[in-house]
Design a protein around this nucleic acid. Structure first.
Length: 848
RNA sequence: GGACGAUUAGCUCAGUUGGCUAGAGCGCUUCCUUGACAUGGAAGAGGUCACAGGUUCAAGUCCUGUAUCGUCCACCA
C-alpha cells in the first residue's frame, strides 16, 4: 500500500465489516477438538434470545473476546461457545404484551397453549438472531458453528433427562408449599427472583373481641386484607400479659368466626402488642405456625391477586390492595381500629413484573441441590477461582444457607415438566407413558434449570473431551446464585468435574450519574450507535480503560472518544512509518532512542502480559495506551524524524499491533495487512520480551534525563513566548550526554541551534533551567524580572524537596532501620538536589 | 440486623508487597494548523488522599473507630 493511499483519519466502518466476513469465511473462530494444541474454552453467558445488545453485553463480551483472542495468539486451541437463552418469563411476557397490543388475544388462554407457543417460536425466529448479529458487530470471535439455544432439541433432551435423573435420585419432589407467587405473571418464583425493597407502609392496630367477654386483644398488621383468612391469634408462651387468654377464642371481625388464641415461641413479645394475627395461607411464618397447631388454611387471595369467595361476599373479586382499604374502612366504622402508624418495612417484589409478591400456597416442584459440600469447597479451596476474590464470601454464604429450589413455573414457554398423571398414578420419564388417560404436568421449568447445564449440555462428545472443563467464565455478580453456583453443582453432579476454573465478575455499567442503565430511564445508549460513531475497536478500548476489576462502571460516551482517538493515533503512527518506508532510509546502528524504545517495548510486553494474567484488563489497556501514545508516538516517532531507523520502527509497531489485537481486533488486522504482516494477525505469536544489547533500565533512565532537558527547553520557550518556529539557540551544559545525544533531540525542541559544553558563562540575562543531568540556557532572551521569578520559584521547589530529604537522613532511626536501598536512594537524591540548588543559586546570583 | 465495597484534582478513576516531588483521561488556561495525527502537538493551573485515633524510621497504602454513599443477604407481624 502506498503511503498516499492511507486516509488521514481512521474509518472503521468498512474495515470492520470486511475483516469480520473474512474471519468467518476462513473459519478462524471454529474450534477443532482434534487439535493437539492446548485447549482454552469459554462458554458465553447466553443472552436472552429476544434481547438486544446492552452496554453490559458489550463489556462482558469484549472481555471474553480479549481472553479468547489472546489465547489463540498464545497457541491454544480456542473454543468460545456462543448461544442464547429462551428466558422463560421474560420472553413470554414480551410476546404476550405484543400479542395483546396487536389485538391477537386478551389473555394467552384465548389462543391456547399450542397456538401461543407457535407465536412465541415465530417471535423467536424473527427476533432471536438480533443479538447474535450485534455480537458480530462487536468483533466477538465466537465459534458460530456451535451456536446453541437452550430449547434446541438436544439441549432440551438434556434438560429433561436431568430432571428425570434427579427425580429418580429423590432430589426432585413435588409438594404443596408456601411459594413466592407473582400475581401479575401468575407463576411461582424462586427466592432469587424476589427483590426485597424497602417500602413505606403502615402498621394497623386492630381490636379482636374476646368471645364471652367485653375484653379484646389488639393485633398489629401491615396487611389488613389478610385478616379475612385469619385462623388464630398467637402470643408468646412466656408472655405473662396474655397467658390467661391462651385456649380462649376471639371473634374474627367482618367474618364473624371464632378463632383460637394460641401460644407459639415464634411470637416476639416485644414487637407491637405481642399479639399476632395468624393467616396460615398468606404468610410464611404463619404457615409454619399453622402446621404446628393444626390450623386450617383459608385461602382468601387468589392466584390473580384478587380476593376469593372465602374472603366473603363483601370483598370477593376485589383486588388485594383495594381490599386492604375496604377492610380498614370497615374496621374503622366498627370502631375496631386502635391506631395507624407509619411503618417502613421490606416488601418482596417480582423481579420481572415488579409487583409485590404474594406468599401463596400451591403445589410446586422443588429441587434439593446436589453436590453442595463439594461445590462449596471447590471455591473455598481455590479449585475454582473468583476474580475479584471477595465474591467467594458471597458465594459460600449462600451455599451454606442454601434452600430447596422451586423449579416449576406456571408458564408455557419453556421445558415442560416430564411428568404425567393418571388418577393417583405419577410417571416421570422422557416419554409419555403407554396407555390412555395420562395428563402431562402443565408447568414448565425455571429457565435457570436449563442454563445451569450450559457448560456441558452445549457440547458434543468430542468437544467435551477436548474442552471441558472450560477455562474462564465472565459474568456479572448479580447472577452468582442464579447461574454460577448452580452451574458448579450441575458440573460436579453430571461431569464429576468443575465446569470452569476461573470466574471473572465484571462491574455493573451505570450511567454518568450512577444510575443503573435501564430501558425505562432511557439512559442506556445503543451500543450499535456507539459502534457506528466510534468504531467497535474504539468502543471496546474506551470501555476497557475504565473497567477496573470489581468496581461498577460509570459510563459516559466521552469514554468512547478516548478509544476512538487512540485508534486514530495508532492509524497515524502506521501512516508515519509507511512514509518513512517510502523514503527508503539507510539502516543504521541503534542509537539512544532506539535502545530506549526497545527497552520500553519489552517492559510493555511484560506489564500487559502480567495484567492480563491477573484479569486486570484496565491495567493492560492503560499500559498499552501509555506505551503507544507516550513512549512510541510522543517520543520515539518524534525522535525518528531526525533519523528514522526502519527496522526498529517496524519491530516496535509490529509488537504493538499484536499486543493490541485482543482489544482492538479490526484495526490491528487492517494495519497488520497494510504493513506487511503475514497471514492474519489472529494467529500471530503473542509477543515475548527479547534480549537486546544495551536496552536496559539504566539506559532508559538516562534517556529520560535527556528528555527532561527537552522538557526544560520547551518550558523556556513557552514561558518566553518563543514559538517552535522561531529560531533560538540553546546551550546545554552537561557531562552526562554526548554532543550526538543532544543533537538527536534538536528537533524535539523546535527550530534551534544546540551547543553542548562542559561549562558556560552566560552573557547578560540568559534564561536557564537546571535539570537532574544538565543545565540548559536559552541564549538571546530577555526579561530579567521574569527570569528571576522563574528561578526563585524553581529554587523554592528544590528547597522544599531538599528539606524533606535532609530531614529524613538526619533521622537516626531512618538511617539505621530503613532498607539500605531506601537510604541510598535518599542520599543520591540529596546529592542531586544540592547540586541543582547550587546551580540555580549561582544563576540567580548572576542576575543581581 | 449482618456481610461486602466505595470515599484521592472541577468530573470519572489509577495508585501492586508501606519508601523518590501522589498519577491518568476528560474539563479548564496559554501557545501552536511544523510533512503521521486538530480524533493532534507543547506548556500550565488544580489535591491538608472523608474524619479521628493507633502501629512504624516512614501511612493514600496497615490496624481500630466514626461519618456518608452503594450493593448483597436476612420470614419479626
Amino acid at each position: 500500500m502506498a503511503a498516499t493511499e492511507i486516509p488521514k483519519a481512521y474509518e472503521p466502518k468498512s474495515v470492520e465489516d470486511k475483516w469480520y466476513a473474512e474471519w468467518l469465511k476462513a473459519g478462524q473462530f471454529t474450534a477443532n477438538p482434534a487439535s493437539t494444541k492446548p485447549p482454552y474454552s469459554i462458554v458465553i453467558p447466553p443472552p436472552n434470545v429476544t434481547g438486544v445488545l446492552t452496554m453490559g453485553h458489550v463489556l462482558n463480551n469484549t472481555l471474553q473476546d480479549i481472553l479468547a483472542r489472546r489465547k489463540r495468539m498464545q497457541g491454544c486451541e480456542v473454543l468460545w461457545l456462543p448461544g442464547t437463552d429462551h428466558a422463560g418469563i421474560a420472553t413470554q411476557t414480551v410476546v404476550e404484551k405484543t400479542l395483546k397490543k396487536q389485538g391477537v388475544m386478551k389473555h394467552r388462554d384465548d389462543l391456547g397453549r399450542e397456538k401461543f407457543l407457535e407465536k412465541v417460536w415465530e417471535w423467536k425466529d424473527k427476533h432471536g438472531g438480533i443479538i447474535i448479529q450485534q455480537l458480530k458487530k462487536l468483533g466477538c470471535s465466537c465459534d458460530w458453528t456451535r451456536e446453541r439455544f437452550t430449547m434446541d432439541e438436544k439441549y432440551s433432551e438434556c434438560v429433561l433427562r436431568t430432571f428425570v435423573d434427579l427425580y429418580q435420585k429423590g432430589l426432585i419432589y413435588r409438594g404443596k408449599r408456601m411459594v413466592n407467587w407473582d400475581p401479575a405473571g401468575r407463576t411461582a418464583l424462586s427466592d432469587e427472583e424476589v427483590i426485597m425493597t424497602e417500602t413505606q407502609g403502615h402498621l394497623w392496630h386492630f381490636k379482636y373481641p374476646l368471645v364471652g367477654s367485653k375484653d379484646f386483644v389488639v393485633v398489629a398488621t401491615t396487611r389488613p386484607e389478610t385478616m379475612l383468612g385469619d385462623e388464630a391469634v398467637a402470643v408468646n408462651p412466656g408472655d405473662q400479659r396474655y397467658r390467661h387468654l391462651v385456649g380462649r377464642k376471639v371473634l374474627l371481625p367482618l367474618r364473624n368466626k371464632e378463632i383460637p388464641v394460641i401460644a407459639d415461641a415464634a411470637v416476639d413479645p416485644k414487637f407491637g402488642t405481642g399479639c399476632v394475627k395468624v393467616t396460615p395461607a398468606h404468610d410464611v411464618a404463619d404457615y409454619e405456625m399453622a402446621l404446628r397447631h393444626n390450623l386450617p388454611f383459608t385461602v382468601v387471595i387468589g392466584p390473580d391477586g384478587k380476593m376469593t369467595e372465602e374472603a366473603g361476599e363483601d370483598f370477593e373479586e376485589l383486588d388485594r390492595f383495594e381490599c386492604r382499604e375496604a377492610v380498614v374502612e370497615r374496621l374503622t366504622e366498627a370502631s375496631l381500629l386502635v391506631k395507624v402508624e407509619n411503618y417502613t418495612h421490606n416488601v418482596g417484589y417480582s423481579e420481572r413484573t415488579n409487583v409485590p409478591i404474594e406468599p401463596y400456597l400451591s403445589e410446586q416442584w422443588f429441587l434439593r441441590y446436589p453436590q453442595v459440600p463439594r461445590s462449596t469447597e471447590a471455591v473455598e479451596t481455590g479449585a475454582i477461582k473468583f476474580y475479584p476474590e471477595r465474591w467467594t464470601k458471597t458465594y459460600t454464604h449462600w451455599m451454606r444457607n442454601i434452600r430447596d429450589w422451586c423449579i416449576s413455573r406456571q408458564l408455557w414457554w419453556g421445558h415442560r415438566i416430564p411428568v404425567w398423571y393418571r388418577g393417583e398414578e405419577t410417571h416421570c420419564g422422557l416419554e409419555a407413558p403407554q396407555g390412555d388417560g395420562w395428563q402431562q404436568d402443565p408447568d414448565v421449568l425455571d429457565t435457570w434449570f436449563s442454563s445451569w447445564l450450559w457448560p456441558f449440555a452445549t457440547m458434543d462428545e468430542a468437544t467435551l473431551k477436548k474442552f471441558y472443563p472450560t477455562t474462564d467464565l465472565v459474568t456479572g455478580p448479580d447472577i452468582i446464585f442464579f447461574w454460577v453456583a448452580r452451574m458448579i453443582m450441575a458440573g460436579y453432579e453430571y461431569m464429576d468435574e468443575k465446569p470452569f476454573s476461573n470466574v471473572y465478575f465484571t462491574g455493573i455499567i451505570r450511567d454518568a450519574i450512577g444510575r443503573k442503565m435501564s430501558k425505562s430511564l432511557g439512559n442506556s445508549p445503543d451500543p450499535l450507535d456507539l459502534i457506528a460513531k466510534y468504531g467497535a475497536d474504539g468502543l471496546r478500548f474506551g470501555l476497557m480503560l475504565i473497567a477496573p476489576q470489581g468496581q461498577d462502571i460509570l459510563f459516559d460516551e466521552k469514554r468512547c472518544e478516548v478509544g476512538r482517538n487512540f485508534m486514530n493515533k495508532l492509524w497515524n503512527a502506521a501512516r508515519f512509518i509507511q512514509m518513512q518506508r517510502a523514503t527508503n532510509p539507510p539502516a543504521r546502528p541503534h542509537n539512544a532512542h532506539d535502545l530506549k524504545i526497545l527497552y520500553e517495548m519489552n517492559d510493555a510486553i511484560a506489564k500487559v502480559g502480567a495484567a492480563l494474567e491477573a484479569y486486570k484488563f484496565n491495567e493492560a489497556a492503560k499500559e498499552l495506551y501509555d506505551f503507544v501514545w507516550g513512549d512510541f508516538c510522543d517520543w520515539y516517532i518524534e525522535a525518528s524524524k531526525v533519523s528514522p531507523n526502519l527496522p526498529v520502527l517496524d519491530e516496535v509497531f509490529n509488537t504493538i499491533l499484536r499486543l493490541l489485537h485482543p482489544f482492538a481486533p479490526f484495526i490491528t488486522e487492517e494495519l497488520w495487512a497494510g504493513t506487511g504482516g503475514t497471514g492474519t494477525i489472529q494467529f500471530a505469536s503473542w509477543p515475548q520480551p527479547r534480549e537486546i544489547a544495551g536496552a536496559t533500565a539504566e539506559h532508559a533512565a538516562k534517556v529520560d534525563e535527556l528528555y527532561e532537558v527537552v522538557g526544560a527547553a520547551r518550558q523556556l520557550r513557552n514561558e518566553y513566548g518563543i514559538s517552535q518556529k522561531q529560531r533560538v539557540d540553546f546551550v546545554i551544559v552537561t557531562d552526562h550526554f554526548t554532543t550526538e545525544d543532544c543533537h538527536t533531540i534538536m528537533r524535539l525542541i523546535g527550530e534551534c541551534g544546540v551547543t553542548v559544553a562542559s561549562s558556560y558563562t552566560p552573557q547578560g540575562v540568559t534564561p536557564s533551567l537546571v535539570t537532574k543531568a544538565a543545565t540548559i540556557f536559552m541564549v538571546g532572551a530577555v526579561d530579567v524580572e521574569q527570569e528571576r521569578q522563574r528561578l526563585t520559584k524553581q529554587l523554592a521547589d528544590i528547597e522544599k524537596q531538599l528539606a524533606g530529604a535532609e530531614a529524613k537522613l538526619a533521622n537516626e532511626s531512618f538511617v539505621s532501620k530503613a532498607a539500605p536501598v531506601a537510604v541510598q536512594r535518599e542520599r543520591d537524591k540529596l546529592a542531586s538536589l544540592r547540586e541543582q540548588r547550587a546551580k540555580i543559586a549561582a544563576l540567580l546570583h548572576a542576575l543581581q
